[in-house]
Simulated assay, not measured.
Amino acid sequence: MQKIEVLNNIAHEHLRVNPRFAVELNDDVASTFTYVTEFSDVQKEYPILCRKTPDTEEYQAIVFFGFEKKENLFLTDSKPGKQRNLGWNADYVPAVMARGPFSIGIHREIVNGVEKSNPMVHIDVNHPKAICEDGQNLFLENGGNSPYLNHIAKTLEIINDGIPLTKLMFDAFNKHQLLESVVLDIEFQNQDKLKISGFETVNVGKLSCLNGEDLEELNRSGFLQAAYFIAASMSNIRKLIDLKNRKLLAGDN
């Protein structure tokens, strides 16, 4: 069961967090959310697909790590010295995964009769990565933030800033009707077949047909580049298939 607490250098002075990625640390997920604030890094490694949630009808950007439930093809047991991210075989780990047991919570207070909302770092002290004796310190001896905690703060900022910006991005995409349905028909080397549907991607043809004013509007907002990032990321489907085929050939089911 989760136990969420506001992070502070008194109650959590001696708390250590495991920075590794592994199945036993709850990193065995096939997909998660991603945000426009990290698209430039995500699109180099992973496919980004878009979907509309059935309950809210709002769009989400989804980054894929595998093809079936609890399959993360980027988890690795390779020697740590060869990895930029311990246990994860890629140069960039999407923010939702990289944050580990941390999250942003909103602290509300009344100042001069006006309610103010301040984002604060929270931690799930019951998370597997927070139950650790030889992990990363969160605070320095003088009470300041450790380099690891500063890294986590930047990661949480990517998410916190990305949530509203990603919504605006999809509003812009829908305004210009840039999204189209995509169906992925995949066959692996062992002849297993898989069809992935219910997702959308950017139609580059429609994007290239926009007039100058619309293109300028998208460019000023940064969403023109984001659209091309989504489109370019689809080439990483091939990368995922190759990773899956290697797993199948190795007999790792």
Rank of each mutant, 00 (worst) to 15 (best):
D77E: 10
K79G: 00
P80K: 04
G81N: 08
K82H: 12
K82E: 12
K82Y: 13
Q83A: 14
Q83W: 01
R84S: 15
R84G: 09
N85K: 13
L86A: 12
L86H: 03
G87D: 11
W88D: 03
W88P: 02
W88M: 10
N89H: 11
D91C: 07
D91P: 00
V93G: 03
V93L: 04
A95N: 03
A95E: 10
M97P: 00
M97V: 08
M97I: 12
A98L: 03
A98Y: 01
G100H: 06
G100I: 13
P101G: 04
F102L: 06
F102T: 02
F102W: 05
S103F: 11
S103G: 08
I104G: 03
E109Q: 15
E109D: 14
I110T: 14
N112M: 11
G113I: 05
G113P: 02
E115Y: 07
E115P: 13
E115W: 08
K116A: 00
N118I: 15
N118F: 09
N118M: 14
M120Q: 15
M120P: 00
V121F: 10
V121L: 15
H122A: 10
H122S: 10
I123P: 11
I123F: 05
I123R: 04
D124P: 06
N126W: 00
N126R: 02
H127K: 05
H127S: 06
H127Y: 04
P128T: 12
A130R: 03
A130T: 03
A130F: 01
C132M: 07
E133C: 05
D134Y: 02
D134T: 15
Q136C: 11
L138T: 01
L138R: 01
F139P: 09
F139K: 06
F139R: 04
F139Q: 07
L140A: 10
L140C: 14
E141Y: 03
E141L: 12
N142S: 09
N142Q: 07
N142E: 13
P147I: 13
P147K: 11
Y148E: 14
L149R: 04
N150C: 11
N150D: 15
